[in-house]
């Protein structure tokens, strides 16, 4: 099995909400000091999905990431978990795209990689919360897709995917090659091993520039956008909490019940 996993470096989505700031002049997020970026969590689960298939069937896993200022410690994490190679599309021309121009560059890089049975993405990146890049890559490459997977196995040359639904899941069989997006229901991604960390240290990422993957310059990054972002802002919270107290916790609890009945919430 040849597998490709698309991973994105993002601001840590679990940083405390109070540390989240936007610069209104640039419509950009101000990274909180001292909180390093991470790989978008669902993308780590996508790496885990690929590793489980590699464990069962063998194969090669290529990691693909587009961005600038990619911290090697961050983007090498999949290598330390057991992936085989890391390819970076690292160039200012690639960035500030929308899902379409990002997917176009990723798809062109995937064509250059050539051989693949499964492409994995996260169900959505934790910054855009869009969940579109996977579908766009599949559309550009003309391959089938299954989104929001909780389990992926390969059986008889097809992938068998448990796809999360609102009230459970369904088992979907898909012809290969295919693109599959992965959700947290898959389970915790594995930790890096010491051996993995050592071998990841020695592996240098392969860096591709626009010319290396034969993209049309007008179709990548900010120039290739189909949608424009007019504004990025933080919603204002107007609520003010009333803390119910009492002589002790039990008493406070009883006072809360009284209060909720009094204001007719219960």
């Amino acid at each position: 099995m040849n597998m490709i996993v698309c991973v994105k470096q993002v601001p840590d989505p679990e940083a405390p909400p109070a540390s989240f700031k936007i610069d209104p002049a640039t419509n950009k997020v101000v990274p909180p000091p001292g909180v390093p970026p991470v790989i978008s969590p669902f993308d780590e689960q996508a790496v885990e999905a690929a590793l489980r298939i590699k464990d069962a069937k063998g194969g090669k896993i290529s990691i693909l990431s587009l961005g600038i200022g990619l911290l090697r410690d961050v983007v090498k994490k999949p290598l330390s978990m057991g992936a085989d190679e890391l390819i970076l599309l690292e160039d200012p021309a690639f960035i500030e795209g929308d899902s379409w121009s990002t997917a176009y560059a990723l798809a062109m890089a995937i064509k250059k990689i050539g051989q693949f049975d499964i492409i994995f993405c996260g169900r959505q990146a934790s910054d855009t919360d869009a969940g579109q890049v996977g579908s766009a890559i599949a559309e550009i490459l003309g391959i089938p897709q299954v989104t929001v997977a909780r389990k992926v196995e390969v059986l008889d040359g097809k992938a068998r995917v448990e796809k999360v639904t609102a009230d459970g899941y369904e088992v979907v069989e898909v012809n290969l090659p295919a693109l599959i997006t992965v959700s947290n229901e898959l389970g915790e991604p594995r930790y890096a091993t010491i051996k993995g960390i050592m071998s990841a240290k020695r592996k240098e990422p392969i860096v591709w520039k626009p010319a290396d993957i034969g993209v049309e310059p007008g179709k990548i990054g900010a120039t290739g956008r189909r949608s424009k972002m007019l504004k990025l802002f933080q919603p204002v919270r107007e609520g003010k909490v009333e803390i119910i107290t009492g002589e002790n916790e039990e008493d406070a609890a009883a006072n809360l019940a009284r209060k909720l009945v009094e204001v007719k919430l219960l």
Binding site: P13, F20, S126, D127, D129, S227, K228, L230, L232
Partner: peptide
């Protein structure tokens, strides 16, 4: 649409 896990909102057009 909400972005950054709901920490922010963005307005898009096309």
């Amino acid at each position: 649409k909400p972005v950054y896990g709901g920490n922010a909102r963005a307005i898009f057009t096309s």
